[in-house]
Nucleic acid binder design. Structure first.
Lengths: 341, 341
DNA sequence: ATGAAAGCGCTAACAC
DNA sequence: GTGTTAGCGCTTTCAT
């Protein structure tokens, strides 16, 4: 924390401004002066104080990313991708996880580390539109994730309804008819997981298959244990689905473990489709068919969106953009072969 | 970015200092004044500019954590724990991942986001002692992870040799004798994975079992795919281990997948022990026996160590501390039952 | 091409 | 109990 511009200036016998010019690679500096200053910088081991620079410039070069849970590999991978994308724009990333708790999400939306960050990428789970509308912090915000709000913020997410429909379509094509949905939450229309549930209903309806509400299993969270509990509850309830569409891969993996314990074969007895394309799904007892969102694209678009707002290119705050990266359905062992007759 | 202390002061008809006193909850302010100022703060929507505060105080309240790879659930979980521990000390966490590449580790060690961070927690993989010794950045540094350096930095890690020995001991107790080690790297004594390999050798030696170098499988990285490749190579080489001790759970999971594909049963034919206690290991084809480091303790100790240095309590930089959190061996299905005779 | 000086928003001495 | 003032280290007019 020692040496400042002033020290270097004195050492080199020039003014502060000149040193600043050298440090910032300003054009009009004579080679001789530049060299002299550079030498002083090297001997003194000067490193610019970014905090001061930030104060002066009004920006910090730091953006924040808040995801529900780093223990979920999907968010961990996404975080990694965001860090890489941010680095390309010379931003560093402050990371927080909200644990899917409303008060933490609120805290983050309200002004995470007030003013040390230039902008925020947030993946809300529990936050309602009014929470976000009441936001007073003026740092630009970009939303990611399944939930949609009618608010003046850019939003990056794949088309969750279409993705869910593709998954259910695949199961229907296999001849499955009793397709369970694992991972619904509450009954609010704005609930998390709502869009995927909607996709499930829509695709069944389009194929003239009755959507049996008894086949919708509710969960507390979306981890492996929740998937296991939901599947167990479904089976204990006497339900006998011939396929499962899970909210995400973790839920699917938990469900598959329960099925294995109870002697149900995947995919023979029950075909399974997950969501997220976790690497883990490629190494389980049975490799997992899954909806694969383009995580790199999500990260890249979120960062570009935010950086665009920050640089003023995309100033108009009244024109939020809805960006939808691609997804693909990756067919693996868990949906191999047609339904038993 | 609008309203500053000055604006509030003018609005409330008091001095800047008084507003500052209120904002910082300074004792000696009359309730009347406090209320008046608070009202001004509320109406104007004032929020302190942390950058300015940081510049003045010489610290930012941000610490950095650099891990090899967020895609590895171990590091993702650890990162989550560090974020939580840091929050308890009013620090936020800037996260970076080095992808286990030396130049990125070097960059981080040299001065990650120069001076925006107060200190750094680093988990090096490829960095050598001289790299770290040549470090010029003066932000306090705390090291975590398997590798050990004789340098003046605190280091937090479980006793990797003892942990590896416990794993091998467990396999020996089961009657296994041809115990492979999956996950060695190069031949440098300081190589990553060295301590666990050393533990493997030591425990075999202590039991009078010959350490067969042909049973040491080398890897490029430590992900599932690397474990799969290593196991395949071992089998292709004609080796027939009756047990596998893997560098970590991901390597173990990759290896188990290959064994399943080749008709080898776990644990009947090959018992498997991993390392890290990933949740994933509890939901695989066979639940995975593993060495479970106390991640919460590692995160807590690393943060406390760093915060201690920052607050000056643990000033003496010449006295690095080696802290060793506990570990436990969690026995699961992958090592159930004795060896076939 | 380089220098002088102001000021980003805040805290900490030191007055009163 | 409250006000004044001087910087923290940097960038940025405006001179020269």
């Amino acid at each position: 924390m020692r040496v400042s511009l002033k020290d270097v200036a004195e050492h080199a016998g020039v003014s502060i401004k000149t040193v600043s010019n050298v440090v910032n690679n300003y054009q009009h500096v004579t080679p001789a002066t530049r060299q002299k200053v550079q030498r002083a910088i090297d001997t003194l081991g000067y490193r610019p104080n970014l905090t001061a620079r930030h104060l002066r410039k009004g920006r910090t070069g730091i953006i924040a990313l808040a995801v529900p849970e780093l223990g979920n590999p999907y968010f961990a991978e996404l975080a990694g991708a965001v860090i890489d994308a941010a680095a390309e724009h010379d931003y560093t990333v402050l990371l927080d996880h909200t644990q899917g708790r409303r008060e933490r999400e609120l805290l983050v939306a309200q002004g995470f580390s007030t003013r040390v960050i230039d902008g925020l990428i947030l993946n809300p789970l529990e936050l309602e539109a009014e929470d976000l509308a009441a936001r007073t912090d003026d740092a630009p915000l970009v939303l990611i994730g399944e939930r949609r709000y009618d608010l003046p913020y850019d939003h990056i997410a794949i088309d969750n309804i279409a993705a869910a429909r593709a998954a259910v379509r695949h199961l229907l094509d296999l001849g499955r008819r009793r397709i369970a949905f694992l991972g619904a939450r509450r009954d609010r229309p704005s609930q998390p997981a709502h869009l995927r549930l909607l996709g499930w209903q829509a695709e069944l309806a389009a194929s003239g298959v009755a959507a049996d509400e008894a086949l919708v299993a509710r969960v507390e969270g979306w981890d492996r244990a929740d998937g296991a509990a939901a599947m167990a509850a479904l089976l204990d309830d006497g339900q006998r689905p011939d396929a499962v569409f899970a909210y995400n891969d973790l839920v699917a993996i938990g469900a598959m473990r329960v099925m294995a314990e109870r002697g149900l074969r995947v995919p023979e007895d029950v075909a399974v489709v997950g969501f997220d394309d976790l690497t883990e799904g490629r190494y389980g007892m049975v490799t997992l068919t899954t909806v694969a969102p383009d995580k790199q694209a999500i990260a890249r678009l979120a960062v570009e969106s935010l950086v665009g707002r920050l640089s003023g290119e995309l100033a108009a705050p009244g024109r939020p953009r809805q960006l939808q990266p691609h997804f693909t359905l990756l067919e693996r062992e868990s949906t191999l072969g047609r339904a038993p007759r």
